Simulated scan of single mutants.
Amino acid sequence: MRWLKRWFWTPIREDENWAQTLVRVLGNLFRTIFTLFIMGIAVILIAVLVTVMGNRAAENKAQKTRDRISLDVMVLQNDEDRVAFDNVMEDYAREKAAENVEKAEEFRAKARQLAFSKDTYAVRCPPGYPLAIYIENRSDKVLESATIKLTARRKGSSVNELSYLEGEVKWTHYVPPLHGYVSCYTVNPDKKDLIYSASFLNYTVDLIDMEDWEGKETNAWLIQTLSED
């Protein structure tokens, strides 16, 4: 450690004149200040590097979480599908009221299959709101809100037929972990037959930690239960 001590302060010799002593003292001060300056810069750079790496790791983790939230959209084209769904739900309600457990469960399973099939989940949407957006959350966070970008094209075309206002949807429904939810929207009658697709706008997916009240108040459905049968 002697060399380190001498780096910061070289002792003054007895045979030095005042000029040599002044030069030695100034040299000692310069080395000390220069060393402290370099060490300060190094500490700042290390702190910045640690912060950047921490932010990058946090963003990578957040992105992996966002990637576990899927999005789908469709327009109900056939009102007969909705009528069939409504009829099954009526049958389920009737059998449940009559306490016919097995029969009620049979209709419940059929309704669930209609409501959450990849091709027919839009049957949950009432007349006048045929545009169904389905979000499935398989992350460990609660989806609080998001901005969804919609596009719609005619068959065989790549041209987006939606205006800016028609193509942006604000999602404000809580979707807890392992839950799915269908939200319904209006659509211009002349654009009902278009082919719709949807995606999240970057960094608009707001995720929060799960709280008890969110699980109790949400209208979303448990994916594991809905995916049965």
Rank of each mutant, 00 (worst) to 15 (best):
S163T: 15
R154K: 15
A132K: 03
A122F: 01
F34P: 02
N60E: 14
M210D: 07
I148C: 06
E217P: 00
K103P: 00
K61E: 13
L150R: 12
A122T: 03
V75S: 07
F116L: 02
T35Q: 04
W7Q: 02
W171D: 02
S145D: 07
D15I: 08
E95A: 15
P11W: 10
G167T: 02
T65L: 13
K103C: 00
K191C: 04
V101F: 11
M74H: 01
T120N: 03
R13Y: 05
E168N: 12
D91E: 14
D190V: 12
L131Q: 00
D79N: 12
M53N: 12
V73T: 02
D209C: 04
M210I: 13
F85Y: 15
H179T: 00
Y196T: 07
L29P: 00
S183K: 09
F34Q: 03
V187D: 01
Y196L: 08
E102Q: 10
E59L: 06
L36N: 07
L49H: 14
C125T: 02
S70T: 14
T51N: 15
Y92P: 04
K61Y: 11
E99C: 01
S117L: 06
R2S: 10
I33M: 11
R13F: 03
R108W: 11
V123L: 05
K216D: 05
W18M: 12
N188C: 07
R6M: 08
V187Y: 03
M74K: 06
C184T: 03
K170W: 04
K96W: 07
V101M: 09
N78D: 15
A62M: 14
Y121L: 07
K216F: 07
V25K: 10
D140C: 06
L143A: 01
A146T: 08
Q63D: 13
I195Y: 05
D79R: 13
K170Y: 08
R13L: 13
V159F: 12
G215T: 10
D206A: 11
G128R: 06
V52I: 13
M1N: 12
R108V: 05
N78T: 09
D190N: 14
